[in-house]
Write a protein that binds this DNA or RNA. Structure first.
Lengths: 223, 223
DNA sequence: GCGAATTAGTCACTTTCTGTGACTAAAGTC
DNA sequence: GACTTTAGTCACAGAAAGTGACTAATTCGC
């Protein structure tokens, strides 16, 4: 990503790195020296033989010093939209990092998703795709846990879900569903956070077997 | 970005075209004359300025004479796996067609997903991605309706869901969920299919507004 | 020290949804 | 006309989700 090829590059790999700050999602951008836009989603032209996922991991590592806790491809973008590179196609990856461990290298900075600076159109499409992917796979993948530190309170977990879903959840329902899913393990530690009763700490406990949905879901609105 | 590099194709667009035959999914493949594998997923190198989706639509049209009823991108594939082209990256699209309107051009043929001939590794990965995408977005998008003719009986619809989900559904539950979703509109026509009471015909009626899920779902098993 | 305020955590009740078997309806077969 | 076959509906039991009220453990103000 550093070197700018003199002629058209075949494709780029772009990493939309997200974290959750306070009460909003934030995206990591890198400062441009010479581009039309002052900021861009970090990207890279893969070396010969480098896999897409490996290239994305490298981009993330260059930005944060360590690989993200979660990474998945969210698709290929092109369609005539402009990109900082000359490439016709860019493959976008979504990476998630807990906010506490996420210290960007110099030149990189977090931006709230609602206050993003201007981006190249193709990269703006990627960010939109990434936020959709987060919401869409929230109940398919342990997204929320990848945005939290290794240990957390149930209130923190619930707030993370509320942030990602964009709606309030009822405490009792949330905990009942969580218990039924066997996703979380209580630890023998409590944390006192100013006033109020101390909260027990929990850690993520991956599921072993999937229990299929009951019923059929018809939850779409496509034309 | 408009200009096209003069050497090795930068990327390809591949179309995994699927239909439902009898009781299994089938994929459309094209016969190769000179490749290592005798069959391959139809693909194309996009022209300069051609969008990815447009290229995929062209591939599908070349294969079937008309665009599929549904088309969506399922991701970029590369990762060193071999492809009929020289391209390092291939963008795969999933296309769905009703079986009755799907007459392949010469050189193309349907294969049951369980009886696929050998494919280039990258294309095999695409087909696997496509079948996963079908099951995964079955309750997010009107997949089943795009595999059925414009009008259908509720039994046909239920059988399609059973095929795609790989499990049997209870008639009363299925219809109750369908009614609650307002996805289907009765027509003033009935069809008699040999013995038994004639079935009323229905057509797909896209939803206007989404009703959000109740509760929170923790349905994943990722590590 | 003590009550108010604050956050954690649980309980019980109500409402809604799903699984299921049995039922009625309308055709063909013999 | 009795039997078979497929369509379509009903009603009830059981499971899951929505919700408000409760108890528990801490800090703050006084």
């Amino acid at each position: 990503m550093r070197e700018r090829p003199s002629r058209a590059t075949p494709h780029t790999v772009d990493a939309v790195l997200a974290t959750a700050t306070g009460n909003e999602l934030a995206i990591l951008l890198v400062r441009n020296s010479s581009e039309r836009e002052r900021w861009s989603v970090p990207w890279r032209t893969p070396q010969a033989g480098e896999t897409l996922a490996a290239a994305a991991a490298t981009v993330a590592k260059d930005a944060l010093g360590e690989p993200p806790a979660w990474m998945e491809q969210i698709g290929a973008f092109g369609d005539g939209k402009r990109h900082p590179s000359e490439a016709e196609v860019s493959v976008a990856y979504l990476g998630l990092v807990p906010h506490d461990t996420a210290s960007p290298r110099t030149g990189y900075a977090w931006f709230q998703v609602t206050e993003l600076p201007p981006l190249a159109p193709r990269q703006r499409a990627m960010v939109e795709g990434a936020t959709k992917a987060i919401e869409g796979s929230l109940d398919q993948a342990p997204i929320a846990f990848r945005l939290l530190p290794a240990t957390f309170t149930l209130s923190e977990l619930q707030h993370m879900y509320e942030l990602l879903l964009g709606k309030r959840l009822h405490k009792a329902s949330f905990r009942r569903a969580l218990q039924a899913a066997w996703l979380v393990e209580p630890m023998d530690e409590w944390r006192s956070e100013g006033r109020g009763r101390p909260a027990q700490l929990f850690q993520y406990l991956p599921k072993k077997k999937r229990r299929p949905h009951r019923g059929v879901r018809f939850d779409f609105l496509y034309p």
